[in-house]
């Protein structure tokens, strides 16, 4: 029987289609990441920790909600690892669980300022809520 951690890793690799073994630990993703200082775990650590199966800390980290999906790491990685896709897969692993939505309908009224574009709300919903 595979343990839960291994199943999660398998699911993350399947969803993201990322081959984490391609990472050569250059750190360019974290060098380019605009959300670096907001994050507890950084793009290269997401890749490394998924590779080694140390996924639990990532599941519980606020870092999941700091990634801007700006794809800077995806485009600039010399090895084509695509770290943003790993972050997305880990985040989905969390928010797909019951009661784990990051953004709830009750939060919305306070956010609306009369100017905020619909795009912001639907995007945040896609990223943080299932």
């Amino acid at each position: 029987m595979k343990d839960k951690n291994e199943l999660i890793k398998e699911q993350i690799l399947y969803q993201s289609k990322v081959n984490v073994r391609k990472c050569m630990r250059c750190g360019k993703c974290s060098g380019t990441c605009p959300a670096y200082d907001e994050m507890e775990y950084h793009p290269h650590q997401f890749v490394y920790m998924v590779e080694t199966g140390d996924i639990e800390p990532l599941l519980n980290s606020e870092s999941l909600y700091k990634c801007l999906t700006c794809f800077a790491c995806v485009d600039r990685c010399p090895r084509g690892v695509e770290p943003a896709k790993i972050v997305e897969a880990v985040r989905l692993t969390v928010i797909r669980q019951q009661g784990k939505n990051k953004l709830k309908p009750d939060d919305i009224p306070d956010i609306i300022d009369g100017e905020i574009p619909q795009q912001a709300l639907v995007s945040a919903y896609r990223k943080f809520t299932k």
Binding site: C26, G27, K28, C29, T32, C33, R76
Partner: peptide, 9 residues
Amino acid sequence: HYVKGMVGK
């Protein structure tokens, strides 16, 4: 100063 890491931008 040798720094292990890569310039990103």
